[in-house]
Simulated assay, not measured.
Amino acid sequence: MERQRLQINTKYTDREVNSTYPHFLRSSERKNLFLVGSSTLKKMSPRKMSTEQINTKVKTVRGGRIRDIEDCLIQYISEGKLDCVDVIVVHVGTNNVSDGDSVHAIIDDYRNLICTVRQSLPRTELVISSILPRPTHYEANGTIYDVNNRLLSLEEQHVEILDNTLDFLYGDQPNLTLFADHVHTNVAGAKV
């Protein structure tokens, strides 16, 4: 039984399954957008996010922290998979907050990710999506609030910050109707 499990795991690793993903083609009619982040993106539909002007691919790294997303981007950049990408949108950070990282450490990780993309893909637009509030973890929301406020100061580094905070609040509390659980959005939240 153990040998079978090893064979299965070595045959179907995440690296092999995703070795051809994402695949973007250069187009003068459509922009290529790559959305990458933690499992908070699992309800995102690349098909629904694509239009006549935008071709969208989504990569979810379950349990992903900021450095995991940076490592994913480094791998894809080194393999030339992002050469034709016009816009990279990164949505990550909630796992850093869950793991108890400090605001300073989280912002440093974002700075490193931004530096990596800016150095490797200087013509690619980079967007950092703010961390969504946590419906059931109000202590974490203080850290999230501080991180999101500090993210706005990073816009000077040729990165756009997409502040989703108000879209996911009802008054001053997380809008529970947009979440499937304490972290992940439901379909309505994904639409927002």
Rank of each mutant, 00 (worst) to 15 (best):
K31F: 09
L166D: 10
E139Y: 10
E70Q: 11
D14S: 14
T177F: 10
V97L: 01
I8L: 14
E155Q: 07
E52P: 05
V17F: 13
V187D: 15
D71K: 02
G63S: 00
Q53C: 12
D101A: 04
Q53M: 14
G93R: 01
I66Y: 00
T185A: 09
E29L: 14
K57P: 06
D83Q: 13
H23F: 09
I69L: 01
V90K: 00
I66W: 01
V147E: 04
T56N: 08
Y145V: 09
V183Q: 02
V61M: 01
N96T: 00
D71T: 00
K59R: 15
N148P: 06
C84Y: 11
P174Y: 05
L166V: 09
V61F: 02
G37H: 11
D167K: 14
V89N: 09
R123F: 08
E125W: 08
T20W: 08
P133L: 02
D71E: 07
Q53L: 14
V36P: 04
D109H: 03
P174H: 03
L176A: 11
G93L: 02
L33S: 11
S50G: 09
L35E: 01
P133D: 04
S38Y: 06
D14V: 12
N18L: 13
L25A: 15
V17Q: 11
L35Q: 04
E155G: 01
K31A: 12
D167C: 10
H91E: 12
N164F: 15
L6A: 12
D83K: 15
Q4E: 13
N32D: 08
F179K: 02
K42E: 11
I8C: 10
Q157M: 15
F168R: 04
P133V: 01
D181Q: 03
D146L: 09
Y12N: 07
D99P: 02
L162N: 13
S120G: 06
R3C: 08
R123T: 11
E52L: 12
T124S: 07
L33D: 10
D181I: 04
V127M: 08
C84H: 12
C115Y: 11
D146Q: 08
P135N: 02
V89M: 12
V103P: 01
L169M: 06
D108V: 05
A180H: 10
N95C: 06
R150D: 06
V85F: 05
R26G: 08
D68P: 05
E139V: 10
S98L: 15
S19I: 06
L162T: 04
I114D: 03
P22G: 00
G80N: 06
N9M: 15
M44E: 08
L152M: 12
L126S: 05
N112R: 13
D108H: 04
E156K: 13
S39N: 05
S102I: 01
T124A: 07
D83C: 11
N96M: 02
N148Q: 07
P22C: 01
V36K: 00
